[in-house]
Nucleic acid binder design. Structure first.
Ligand SMILES: NC(=O)c1ccc[n+]([C@@H]2O[C@H](COP(=O)([O-])OP(=O)(O)OC[C@H]3O[C@@H](n4cnc5c(N)ncnc54)[C@H](O)[C@@H]3O)[C@@H](O)[C@H]2O)c1
Ligand SMILES: NC(=O)c1ccc[n+]([C@@H]2O[C@H](COP(=O)([O-])OP(=O)(O)OC[C@H]3O[C@@H](n4cnc5c(N)ncnc54)[C@H](O)[C@@H]3O)[C@@H](O)[C@H]2O)c1
Lengths: 246, 246
DNA sequence: AGGCGCTTGTGAAGGCGTGCACAAATCGCG
DNA sequence: CGCGATTTGTGCACGCCTTCACAAGCGCCT
């Protein structure tokens, strides 16, 4: 609770010091820690040990401590980490203290599900604009938002301070949409279309390809099937997996 | 030039073809290569150089060559790779020569979109069964499939040879569903619920958390905002990219 | 046949990430 | 006030992954 000193809290919105140079692998895990911390906070925990938080996030405790150490020293030896303080710190680092405005392009099968998902709001994001090229879709309301035509994209991005764009169009339209988003000023793109996007330097793209995930699982199925002799072998995972203990 | 097993695995005994011991990072890229190869095949290419395929897949050419070298020598120096041969090889390694049966549990907002997606079929998968706990959903037809009650899960998994399960239920139900899937005999799970799953050894779990993807993008937004904007040329996409140069 | 240009396959080097193991720090208690 | 229990923060070693650079191999042209 009462803490000694912490350099740059969200409250300290003055001069941003040198941005901590976090390893990419650490950044990818921070959201998971954050989710676990929110669960703990709801459960009423004030503090949590690295061991406990690591278990909740499904990672090694040493890895977790090293990750958090990159943010600074926010733990107390012999006690653990202050849950709310850590939440604030991670949210600050992730830039979630300001709720980010997101535009979604392609309100089809998948886009519809994304637009109707209320789970983003609690994770720091607001989908503020929906776009589609299909005039039959334009004008429809989803979750209180009106689908607009892609032609209005640029103005909306500027007017509403949108920095993140989500692409859920067919792959052959994705590059064009990406170009439009970038031209409008978007500097981060989450792409659901199974294709490679080309963007200028300074623009970040992340891709989610569900078929790829299934194919990776398929590989492991194939591998497991070719090892019919099962002598109590242990199996590793790549992203997230856990072996049951007791 | 029919497919041949390459036998450089030491201590290999038995008639089962030796399964190559691929690096996990390589496995994660094979699906991307496969997609690029299918595009090339449709475009009429017979052969492709590592440089060309690398560009199509958004990776470094040296990395691609090393990845493919793990499968064996399927390229021809001075020429490149035979597109169809490579497709067959990668599909074999990924276990896609048999179309895998997939069960989807949780036919809500997201599950509905997944069930209605026809893109999985062309990537080696068949969604053969849909399940939900909500009796209002049970009995409905989606894309020609009837939604069944989760109680029928075990029998369906056995009867239809399902090895992969997709979880798109709310997070608080996900662990229970995972337990049911494992009990039924599923050995691979793709989890869309934002929570950590605990499964026995030998079961693979991959997690897709869309909010995490957005949060990672948010971090980079935050980082970019704390630096000076700088111009740059075009860059192509890769797994994890950040395109900022000085 | 021989040479030349092109491309693969790979050895080697460097960087990054992971996990162990332990010193340092803090708390509670007698 | 000191001591033991507990937990953080981190130095270090190791293994994986990436990238470079180049020899070996292949086809084509003369
Ligand atoms: N539905 C899924 O579960 C799923 C799963 C994995 C991947 N994907 C991928 O996600 C993307 C969307 O899938 P979907 O099933 O929603 O497809 P969809 O065809 O249902 O929807 C695509 C939408 O994009 C719109 N669109 C097309 N061109 C556009 C443009 N230039 N600008 C703006 N909007 C445009 C269309 O009007 C349509 O509404 C595809 O690339 C697909 O491969 C979908
Ligand atoms: N919709 C999205 O775009 C989106 C985005 C990111 C993450 N997610 C995650 O995906 C999951 C599903 O999201 P959603 O929006 O489709 O939710 P939803 O509430 O619309 O659908 C959940 C479905 O699961 C069913 N269900 C509940 N308990 C079940 C059980 N024990 N067994 C079988 N079925 C059960 C419900 O009846 C419902 O049909 C959630 O965990 C959500 O956090 C969704």
């Amino acid at each position: 609770m009462s803490q000694q000193r912490h350099g740059n809290t969200p409250g300290n919105a003055g001069a941003v010091p040198a941005f901590p140079d976090l390893p990419e692998a650490t950044i990818a895990r921070l959201p998971e820690y954050l989710r676990a911390l929110h669960n703990l906070a709801e459960a009423g925990s004030d503090t949590i040990s690295s061991e406990g938080l690591a278990a909740a996030a499904g990672v090694n405790s040493a890895k977790l401590r090293k990750d958090l150490s990159h943010l600074g020293s926010y733990g107390t030896r012999g006690v653990g980490y202050d849950v709310t303080l850590l939440i604030d710190q991670i949210e600050y680092i992730l830039g979630l203290d300001q709720r980010r405005a997101v535009a979604l392009v392609g309100v089809g099968n998948l886009g519809h599900a994304l637009a109707g998902y209320d789970g983003f709001a609690s994770r720091g994001f607001r989908i503020v604009a929906l776009f589609d090229a299909d005039l039959d879709q334009v004008g429809k309301a989803i979750n209180g938002l009106i689908v607009r035509h892609v032609g209005e994209l640029r103005r909306a991005v500027v007017d509403e301070g949108i920095t993140i764009g989500v692409i859920s169009t067919p792959p052959n339209a994705a590059q064009g949409v990406a170009d439009d988003l970038v031209a409008a000023g978007v500097t981060s793109i989450l792409n659901f279309a199974p294709c490679v996007l080309s963007v200028p330097a300074g623009v970040d793209v992340r891709k989610v390809d569900l078929a790829v995930e299934l194919q990776i699982l398929s590989f492991h199925e194939h591998r497991k099937a070719s090892l019919t002799a099962l002598p109590g072998g242990r199996v590793d995972q790549s992203g997230n997996q856990e072996a049951v203990g007791s």
